[in-house]
Amino acid sequence: MNGFLEYVPGTSLMHRLNPIVKLLGAIVFAVACFFSSNLVFLACMLVLALAMAASCGMMKPTIGLMKAVFAFSLLLAIIQILFTPSGDALVVLPWGYIGTGSLIAALTTVVRLEAAAIPLFLTFYVTKVSDMTNAAVKVLHVPYKYAFTFSLTVHFIPVFLNDMKGIMESQTARGVEFDQVGIIKKIGLIMPLCVPLLVSSVRKTNSAAIAAEVRGFNLRTRASGFKQYPFAAFDVVALLAVVALLVVAIIL
């Protein structure tokens, strides 16, 4: 399996969609999740997002993503449970109470974040970053330097993750016990390692900029790309479907 946010080749419908449709579709899908607070609707959106992941064979990275999003959303959910009392009181607290409404709101937050995150992340697994950049330049008329900056940022995420892994291994080999201490101490141990990561990031970014420059980066225009990104019938259908979901979310 490829690294985090790295393209995985495939021939599924999701892979074949126009990159712009995938990107816009994922954004509209996420917006729809935030427009509605209807738990049933959000649960349906989550199921739909999982179905999309399954259709392109990306269940394994999706489950990994869900775990990470769950950890973050759980924190929000706990805050919501403790500090936004609503509905019938279940547990009385010195500053308020935990009610049925608090629990439903917390559950809604978790489901919403999970549902909104999956298509956004899925887009990167089923689209080459270069296609996303070129299509943004060709179709959306985004200036190439901004599109390139975006693609480079995405490209560097797995690179930096790998670098961090290498740095942590080097320090582990020197005796730093990342796996033996508590979370606070662990953060304390990791913080100094941001220095080599920062240095290597700056060096890599500088090299990438010079390499782009010598390859005529500034000469590139919208017409430079030979690849076309035409919209097929199923692209239009897919885009209409997510717009319909947004309308439903607004109505609900």
Binding site: G166, E169, S170, A173, P192, P196, S200
Partner: peptide, 10 residues
């Protein structure tokens, strides 16, 4: 390690 930059942190 092959890459000294992974090791140096001070």
């Amino acid at each position: 390690f092959q890459n000294p930059d992974n090791q140096i942190c001070c």
